[in-house]
Design a protein around this nucleic acid. Structure first.
Length: 502
RNA sequence: GUCCCCUUCGUCUAGAGGCCUAGGACACCUGGUUUUCAUCCAGGCAACAGGGGUUCGAAACCCCUAGGGGACGCCA
């Protein structure tokens, strides 16, 4: 076991640095929880920094969803967007001038170099290396330019990136505080791009600069970063900065042990909210991934976790995110922690909040004769997984294969939507229907059944809009599963066909 | 392919050389309570990946093998 006595001076500062490029991920919440507990246990601060240096994929909407999700879970940050401290701004897109001055320092020190290689050359280089079963990586072509040559290329307007120089030999040894020493040979480390051709920094560069400037003392992050730690350490040494402590947490896994992914599991925090889990139960559950209370108690609040936290007791085997146990824990919270009044309030807010009910009413109203008809046709709006059977999908105009395609392609369409509004949903589904050369009434059948549990129901497009993507995705997946599922091989073919016409 | 990390019941985990005949929880099974069911309670099933060392003593320390995972992007 490793010594984990923490010197409480300088102050402990940890951070979570999500990239706003998709749905808020439970893995983000998991890492956030451990960072927050560690910082607060030591009387330090937990910082939130938005890593939006990928201009193409970052969206405001995703950033907002991530912030909302973390707040919902009670993972409030001490410094970050909306909570400005003295080390802001906390959005990397607002810190460009900082990276610019820092990259100039590295260039001046000859620790980095401009690279003019095109994406095309890099791709074929990689391909070649793969074919020859070599390790992939930049070959250092642009290293041979003199400063003058490079400068004239730049002033001639050639597009370029800036890469880090890597020692030619030797190895990098560093200490992972959870595992002990790790050695990685420099020959294994790529000449990572630090600044992209759009002038924005990559994660590796911005992350190190910001961690230093924001006085991050302990970097607690996913295990996936172990291999890039040498690059980060090299930057610290080029800048002659003090190095933080590194703790690499195990990765959350799918039941098949692969890294938790939305292809195989619901990973969006919004899904768990939409399914009616309590935030404190979800956080508690994440806290038992790789960690346990010294007492063995499995139900604990975040405050109790902070009081009893000891990062040295994190176990390193990748925990499988097991929804069955989450369900049990959530039920325990509902039974033990909610009195009837609290249950009533939370449930009605979850199921019948004004916004949702306002959307549902016009759909339901025209189809009922008595209020007593409402529950029957509207229950799917307040359900999680539906009870479906293969016979529910029976249709004389479509075979199972066609239905599977409709479901899978529709899901891909919906997942690709930038904006979640009914017009966008309608037009992408209609477009798909036309491309598949199907009648709309046939096309919609598997969707109706998957989403509402019945061929006869309120408008499926409206329903999808109201249920939102997380629940829609789960229901379409269930539909696919009930229809027999899609094999890996089949999925590949489908993807190819889908790409061809979308 | 190269490198790195990991390995205790099906799953989450306890375990800091002797408290280990390996403990708890979920799931599953049995029984009890309950007008049904669920809850709740009691019990059961079930693991140290394999092989070598080190040691009086190994789940724990070391080595090898196997298995799993991750990284190898102008993504983070």
């Amino acid at each position: 076991m490793l010594d984990t006595n923490i010197i409480s001076n300088p102050p402990v500062r940890t951070r979570i640095a999500p990239s706003p490029t998709g749905d808020p991920h439970v893995g983000t919440a998991y890492i956030a929880l451990f960072n927050r507990c560690f910082a607060h246990q030591h009387g330090g601060q937990f910082i939130l920094r938005i890593e939006d240096t990928d201009k193409k994929r970052s969206t405001e909407r995703s950033e907002k969803d991530i912030l909302d999700s973390l707040r919902w879970l009670g993972l409030q940050w001490d410094e970050g967007p909306g909570c400005e401290g003295e080390f802001g701004p906390y959005r990397q897109s607002e810190r460009s001038h900082i990276y610019k001055s820092h990259i100039n320092q590295l260039l001046a020190k000859d620790c980095a170099f401009p690279c003019f290689c095109t994406a095309g050359r890099l791709n074929s280089l990689r391909k070649e290396q793969m074919e020859q079963k070599q390790q992939t990586g930049y070959d250092g072509k642009c290293l041979s330019f003199t400063k003058e040559e490079a400068e004239s290329k730049i002033s001639a307007g050639e597009s370029y990136v800036i890469r880090i120089k890597i020692p030619a030999e030797g190895e990098c040894e560093f200490e992972d505080k959870l595992r002990g020493p790790v050695n990685i040979s420099w020959s294994q480390v790529d000449m990572q791009v630090l600044v992209k051709s759009d002038g924005l920094p990559t994660y590796h560069f911005a992350n190190v600069v910001d961690d230093h400037l924001m006085k991050i003392s302990h970097v607690i992050r996913g295990e996936e970063w172990i291999n890039s730690t040498p690059k980060h350490l090299l930057l610290y040494s080029y800048f002659d900065w003090e190095v933080p402590e590194f703790y690499h947490m195990p990765l959350l896994r799918n039941p098949d042990k692969s890294k938790l992914s939305k292809r195989k599991n619901p990973t969006s925090i919004g899904y768990y909210q939409a399914m009616g889990y309590l935030p404190q139960a979800l956080v508690n559950y994440l806290g038992m991934m790789g960690w346990s209370m010294p007492s063995g108690e499995e139900k604990f609040s975040q405050q109790e976790m902070i009081e009893n936290f000891n990062i040295a007791r994190v176990s390193l085997g990748g925990p499988i995110f097991d929804i069955e146990k989450l369900d049990w824990l959530n039920g325990k919270y509902i039974r033990e922690d909610l009195d009837d009044d609290a249950f009533r309030k939370l449930f009605s807010e979850w199921a019948f909040n004004d916004e949702k009910v306002r959307q549902i009413v016009p759909l339901i109203k025209q189809r009922v004769e008595r209020f007593s008809d409402v529950a029957k046709i509207g229950s799917f709006f307040v359900s999680g997984e539906l009870d479906l059977n293969v016979v529910d999908f029976a249709n004389k105009n479509l075979d199972t294969d066609a239905e599977l395609k409709i479901l899978q392609y529709s899901l891909w369409e919906l997942e690709a939507l930038k904006q979640w509004d009914r017009e966008a949903i309608e037009s992408c589904l209609l477009k798909l229907c036309a491309l598949m050369e199907l009648k709309i009434r046939d096309f919609l059948v598997p969707l109706f059944v998957s989403i509402s549990g019945n061929v006869v129901s309120t408008s499926v497009i409206e329903s999808i809009f109201i249920l939102k993507l997380d629940i829609t995705r789960a229901r379409i997946r269930k539909g696919i599963e009930v229809l027999g599922g899609i094999s890996k091989k089949r999925a590949k073919l489908m993807e190819k066909e889908y790409r061809a016409f979308s």
